[in-house]
């Protein structure tokens, strides 16, 4: 599904260039459930942002379903993201002034889906996530777990092939976290490719493959035991 070849990302700072991703070579296959782990500052979120096509300032090659994303302009990349990718955030990022139903509807409204179709899809999603009763509530009226449930529902309403989750349970109680992870597992079973960033070994256990990052380098990949430790590369 995705191939990253020699992908690098850096920031210019007064002190010089700071590298956040170094020579990333990664292949993500359809239906995988990948966990990215690593200490703070390892580059996990940066890698997720690159995968989500929110970040354009990287070098290297990015192939998405045989399409050369690295050759695309911003607008084309947005289209690819809009059609194929859904995102779940640690802080849920629900819009406070929109109801649950309106929040879920948001990605569809940006895809120019006809209104009647959208209404049906929102109703289906609310039903599927069992939050029909919450439809007219505002985010502030929900618990953290419920808010993240809405966040996931919003991320998958347009049936994305790839779901990216940045520490989706970071702000949740362990029981709520388990619920969300069960949901991810279920979505994965139904065919959605998932890439999650997490610090939690328990969450990582839901995935089929784990990648470790440190200082921007890929340290290990459970699907590729041959991957050389980054210290060796650096030397």
């Amino acid at each position: 599904m995705i191939q990253l070849k020699n992908l690098e990302r850096s920031y210019k700072t007064p002190a010089g260039q700071t590298w956040v991703l170094r020579r990333i070579n990664l292949e993500i296959r359809e239906g995988e459930f990948i966990t990215i782990m690593g200490p703070s500052g390892a580059g996990k979120s940066s890698l997720l942002n690159v995968l989500a096509l929110l970040d354009d300032s990287w070098q290297g090659e990015y192939w998405f379903r045989e399409q050369a994303v690295h050759e695309m302009k911003r607008k084309q990349r947005s289209e690819v993201a809009k059609r194929n990718i859904g995102m779940v955030f640690q802080s849920y990022h629900l819009l406070d002034d929109l109801t649950v139903g309106e929040n879920i509807d948001l990605p569809l409204s940006y895809k120019d889906v006809p209104r009647s179709e959208r209404q049906a899809m929102v109703a289906d999603t609310l039903d599927r996530f069992q939050i029909v009763a919450k439809k007219a509530l505002f985010p502030s009226q929900l618990s953290g777990g419920q808010q993240q449930l809405v966040g996931v529902a919003r991320a998958v309403i347009h049936k994305p092939a790839l779901l990216l989750a940045d520490e989706p349970t970071g702000n949740l109680h362990s029981s709520q976290a388990k619920e969300i992870m069960e949901l991810f597992h279920e979505l994965n079973q139904q065919g959605t490719t998932i890439v999650q960033v997490t610090h939690s070994e328990a969450n990582a256990a839901y995935g089929s493959r784990t990648i470790q990052l440190r200082d921007g380098w890929m340290l290990s990949d459970t699907s590729n035991p041959e991957l050389r430790p980054y210290e060796a590369v650096r030397q």
């Binding site: 989500a52 929110l54 947005s78 993201a81 809009k82 995102m87 955030f89 990022h93 819009l95 948001l106 990605p107 940006y110 895809k111 919003r154």
Partner: peptide, 13 residues
């Protein structure tokens, strides 16, 4: 700003 960021992350042009 944050709201705009979320909307753009969700596909807003």
């Amino acid at each position: 700003t944050r709201e705009v960021g979320i909307r753009m992350a969700l596909g807003a042009r």
